[in-house]
């Protein structure tokens, strides 16, 4: 569903932010994307979404290349950014209406989706207000609702749990599972290892733009029972070279 093949990206004259990274997210999978700050998670996500252009490698979303078939690839993608300060001068409902027009979603279907998701996130009452009057968590919720309007084949979330209340976190995790169970792919980055442990089918850990761990969660859990927790595994893998020395 989401195929990342040997992608590389560097900024100006700095070292590679992402270095020859290969990932594959299959239909029905929730993929956890872990790594310390500055590891290249957000850059990878921006490459997937087409915000940044690739230096080398390919990314296909539902078999559409993000570089060659940009519009079709984006039609199959839903994205929740880490910072929710967007379209602050639009009302919640206007923002969703804008997305409806862009993705050409039929009105009835869209209305139904908005009602369902807004009720779940307790946002129905706020849809007619300006996004600038929303709290951080509410802004994030409207972005989550917007990203699901067109029922994307690949749902990418950049640190989606930050700023959400426990109820919303629970609902989001449920939504991710439901979305994956419908045969779609979900990829999300997080620093919350416990959530990754409970929600993901697969995890990948990157450091300095390079993949340092890639595994199916069942296997990791099996390994963890006998040896270490995910937290310890993460700490061990992402330890500074200086510390090791």
């Amino acid at each position: 569903m989401l195929n990342i093949q040997g992608i590389t990206k560097h900024y100006d004259k700095m070292e590679n932010a992402v270095d020859n990274l290969t990932l594959r997210v299959l239909p029905g999978e929730i993929f956890g994307f872990l790594g310390p700050n500055g590891a290249g998670k957000s850059t990878t996500i921006k490459l997937i979404t087409g915000m940044h252009t690739l230096d080398s490698g390919t990314i296909t979303i539902n078999q559409f290349d993000i570089k060659l078939d940009t519009i079709k690839a984006k039609q199959n993608l839903g994205y929740v950014p880490d910072t929710p300060n967007f379209f602050l001068h639009l009302k919640g409902i206007e923002y969703l209406n804008f997305l409806k027009d862009v993705y050409a979603i039929p009105s009835e279907k869209c209305e139904q989706t908005i009602k369902t998701l807004a009720t779940k996130f307790n946002m129905l009452h706020a849809l007619d207000d300006f996004i600038q009057n929303y709290s951080h968590g509410m802004r994030k919720k409207i972005l989550i609702i917007g990203s699901l309007l067109h029922d994307p084949k690949v749902w990418v979330l950049d640190e989606p749990l930050n700023g959400l209340d426990p109820n919303a976190v629970f609902i989001l995790k449920e939504l991710m599972r439901e979305h994956a169970d419908k045969g779609n792919a979900v990829l999300f980055s997080t620093h919350m290892l416990e959530t990754a442990e409970n929600t993901c089918d697969k995890i990948v850990i990157i450091k300095h733009g390079v993949k340092i761990f890639d595994g199916v969660m069942q296997e990791v859990k099996h390994k963890m029972k006998s040896e270490v927790s995910l937290e310890k595994l993460f700490m061990e893998l992402t330890k500074n070279d200086k510390d090791i020395n």
Binding site: I93, L96, N97, K100, D101, V102, A104, S107, C110, E111, I114, K115, L124, H125, A126, L127, D128, D129, N133
Partner: peptide
């Protein structure tokens, strides 16, 4: 406080991109 939106008052328009 947010202006109250009635459950049935979601009105969406259809326009070209």
């Amino acid at each position: 406080s947010h202006p109250k939106l009635n459950d049935h008052s979601i009105h969406l328009h259809t326009r070209k991109e």
